[in-house]
Design a protein around this nucleic acid. Sequence first.
DNA 1: CTGAAAGCGCTTACAG
DNA 2: CTGAAAGCGCTTACAG
Lengths: 343, 343
Amino acid sequence: MNGSAKRITLAQVAQRAGVSVPTASKVLSGRTDVADRTRLRVQKAVQDLGYRSPHERRPGGDGPALVDLVIAGLESEYAVEVMRGIIDGATAEQVEIVISSMTPDMSDANVEEWAGRLRQGGRRRLVLVTSDMSTEQLAVFRVNGISVVLVDPRSKPHDGVPTVCSTDWAGGRAATAHLLELGHRRVGYIGGAYEVECNRARQSGYLAALVELGVDFDRDLVVTGRFDPATGADGIRRLLALPDPPTAVFCGNDAIATGVVRQADALGIDVPADLSVVGFDGTPMVENTIPRLTSVAQPLRQIGRTALRTVLQLDRGEPIAAQHVELATNLVVRDSTAPPRGR
Amino acid sequence: MNGSAKRITLAQVAQRAGVSVPTASKVLSGRTDVADRTRLRVQKAVQDLGYRSPHERRPGGDGPALVDLVIAGLESEYAVEVMRGIIDGATAEQVEIVISSMTPDMSDANVEEWAGRLRQGGRRRLVLVTSDMSTEQLAVFRVNGISVVLVDPRSKPHDGVPTVCSTDWAGGRAATAHLLELGHRRVGYIGGAYEVECNRARQSGYLAALVELGVDFDRDLVVTGRFDPATGADGIRRLLALPDPPTAVFCGNDAIATGVVRQADALGIDVPADLSVVGFDGTPMVENTIPRLTSVAQPLRQIGRTALRTVLQLDRGEPIAAQHVELATNLVVRDSTAPPRGR
DNA sequence: CTGAAAGCGCTTACAG
DNA sequence: CTGAAAGCGCTTACAG
């Protein structure tokens, strides 16, 4: 922030873009009667020169900046933990957070209008949590000079948009290895939809651990559904009905694991004596189950803080460490895992 | 939002104050070469006409308004649920939420500076959740023309600042009456600090139910501490060590109740067969305990939505329904309550 | 779709 | 300390 660097005027932008001041003004105010080529030239000039409209210049020599945060599914503890990390980071970085719940109708037109509105309001920093945006939609923000960082464990990374997530594969492997090392040989997996990126990684980590420790993979021991307790309850019922049922299950998230624990209780099956259960996420609920749940903790707050720091770096034109950051997970052993009976 | 009400210009302010435009400009930009009498006249005209400088006006012909939200203790599920309600409301009302975590050092000087910053940024609507602000600090916002609504179950209402909360007394009475109607005669209360307003109300509801149903109050059956699981665990150990221990407890919140349930499990006491437990709040954790917790649900989301609506009404100068709104609680019976053994 | 011209709201520089 | 005059940065209305 070299505060007193001579203020850039619209006239300078117009000159650089090779257009008149009124035309530049039209682009800035988001009017539509401008040729696409012209609009792009002006937008580039705005970026190059770092122009900010009078409204974007905050009085009192730059007040606290705003960072927009859009969270889909603020219902989940996952999203709330990431949000807490972002808010912690905002306090540390002296910025403020504008939070919106994801509106369900994120059509291309809406995204376009929204991006325009953000730019108009001088809001050029955006963190999207589990947004399921298309690459085209993300490009709209770039065109509007808005820096975007994704926290989206559900989707593959997009080119040119930094993402922050956790080491899902390594976490899945660690969870499964823990069960195998306890002596389990029949270990099930109950997860979310296979197509969801983080589920795929966790499931692949499960497989890798089996292979590494020389345990045969049995496709019957894998159930996928959604990341909710019902999937856990249904899944464990199915697995326990097998001729050779598992003595342990690794669950794709904590919600599934709580469903498993509750269903086991209903069936009179003791956890961990008869069945070991490992969850994933390390959300606060793991402390509320009986027994408390062994789980792979994601560094959710750190993910939030990192996403915030990254979007600020992008916005200031600073180099960022990596396009795709994976923060380390951590297996926390609690009371829901034990050696199999008879060992 | 009578949005298009003609924008007030500095010329109008100058005219009303009986000075020239340049002089009015000087006052607004805080320059000192203006007579005190003149300055006061201009400031009065600014207030009377509701003038806002270009910086204070938000671009885009009033774009979505911002509402500031400050939450102390975003750790708690309580705060998160209220926040969800506020965000739902913001979506419905087409406003956006700027969220800050309560900084611990809310000294008078900081509040003063903060209020000034909000006004400068054109942010004139504030919802404070469990803020513990003093009446003097709240007055600072009023002086700065900022509308404030409190969601603060911990403190007594302040004069002239609308508050939204729930019917804590009625909820405490309903919880206790439920236990008495099941046939319990030794019913304990484990709560937070007595001085905390909502605890006081819940505890008073407990007492009222005992009196109404003709059950003697025994001061030994009441334990107060903090709203956390440790208080529940310690409390139930103390109560069960009494010569004539309770067969049921009403807990001041769900966190205390989970501590009770876990401690009972550790002591080999069956809930609900040996001990009935009722919580308060109805946060999602009540579904994760085994057994699931009977609890008095607070309408937390509705509290959030109502607080948001109220601050918008205040800001628009519309009449509000009541200074102090209490929204109804609702006893939800789950699996942690049953008639006492032997009935 | 573009830009010369007019205009708006505010600030600055300066004469009194 | 005040305000007429000049000026700045931007937007609006409109001719081409």
